[in-house]
Design a protein around this nucleic acid. Structure first.
Lengths: 234, 234
DNA sequence: AATGTTTTGTGACATGTATCACAATGTGTA
DNA sequence: TACACATTGTGATACATGTCACAAAACATT
């Protein structure tokens, strides 16, 4: 675990803007200056805790690089609620809520997080309509995603959910048919609400059926269509 | 099903403000005038569809009175993702997203909804920092709630989830130990991801154990402590 | 290389709950 | 009042998946 903290110069601040790649928010001169003076970048190694449930937080965290998992203590075990890929803001509910982190965020790959002073962030929201609008857009997208995820997870059975995750990793996270599993099998279990053993059995099954090829942590999707079918059959 | 549409005069507009009862947003004179000219109130009877998944929407809906359910088509059946009590905005993700409603909203009691023209609403956001801030706060709260709900629903078994819902109805929705179930048993099943039959059996069980008293749709909570224990045991 | 620790594979078994079936009861409507 | 239709109660059965147990493999550390 290493923390490499450094202050950003102007040349790095721009990395904050493309928060939503589709509709990047232009910041004006003044905004730039404010930001460059009030934020700090921290590097995290794979597995490091970026945000810890229950702790106090006074900064806004912007994930500028890497992949992280959002997880929280459930009634019976730790639950991973989603994977988040840079660029994205982390822990906004804490920023606008009671300042106590309601969930943990842990890096799944090496990651870089940019911390912005909370008052600077709020001023930015106040003075930059487009910026607030972006934040609202993002929160709305998350809400929809939560709804869909919730209805999927609870209605499908384990095979379907695992197929979903494999497709998500391939399509959205790594954008490749072949990738290294960023999570252990028990983490995958926590993500789709099933046991470690079931994950192991299902991966073997998919492998045996020629749908994927498993080689250690390396996964190659051989038959995407089958995966989609599995993911759709309840 | 009856629709009683009427335009609001100034005296009604104020009902829009207490969107978050804790931190009501003060609107200035100008805002008031804009709003009173650009919104319409519609009454819905119990069971009416307020928003229908898949339809196009150009208005912001503000639930000023009543109780509604948010539900969407899941892979195997309709799923109720949450109950929402007035006052609250409905369908914000649609407002800020692609204008196609991603979920349905149906009234569970009689309800009154105030429709605000979308551009008026956006202008309001632009010109009123506090207002945008309220919206962001609300969305953040929803995100947290979604996370917790998701981890509860998937980790607890049916008894625990039913206990949860009964407690929520008593504490948050009706604020009374005794209330009429606003949903049928199959709707309750869709809410906590279990079958209609299981709901029936569990209600009988709770009734037999003296934890609640069931009389038709009327429920009285006799032993809240037991319900809490049940809700916490996975 | 040797050793301890974490992760993975797989069998046997227990169990919560979905599903089917059908009766009973409640509710709205002509 | 009567009839159709939706809701609820309850038994019998099936099955997906959690849990336990233990071996094999992978990985890290000295």
């Amino acid at each position: 675990m290493y923390h490499n903290v450094y202050f950003c110069g102007m040349e790095n601040v721009c990395k904050i803007c493309p928060f939503s790649s589709k509709t990047a928010t232009p910041l004006n001169e003044c905004d730039f200056e404010q930001l460059s003076e009030n934020h700090v970048v921290v590097k995290f190694a794979k597995g490091d805790a970026i945000i810890k449930q229950g702790t106090y937080s006074t900064n806004v965290a912007f994930l500028r690089m890497g992949l992280v998992k959002i997880h929280l203590k459930g009634p019976s075990h730790e639950q991973i609620v989603r994977l988040v890929k840079a660029p994205a803001y982390l822990g906004l509910p804490t920023t606008f809520g009671d300042k106590i982190n309601q969930y943990s965020v842990t890096s799944v790959t090496n990651a870089e997080v940019c911390y912005i002073d909370i008052t600077t962030f709020r001023d930015l929201l106040k003075n930059n309509d487009l910026f607030s609008y972006e934040i609202i857009l993002d929160l709305c997208r998350n809400e929809l995603e939560s709804f869909h995820r919730c209805s999927n997870r609870t209605q499908k059975q384990a095979r379907g959910n695992l197929a979903d995750v494999l497709l998500e990793l391939s399509d959205r996270i790594f954008e490749s048919e072949k990738f290294m599993l960023p999570l252990s099998q028990s983490e995958l279990g926590n993500l789709i609400d099933t046991s470690r053993e079931s994950i192991s059995r299902m991966l073997s099954e998919f492998n045996g059926d020629g749908i994927i090829r498993v080689n250690g942590k390396e996964i190659e999707i051989l038959n995407k269509k089958s995966l989609i079918v599995i993911s759709q059959n309840g």
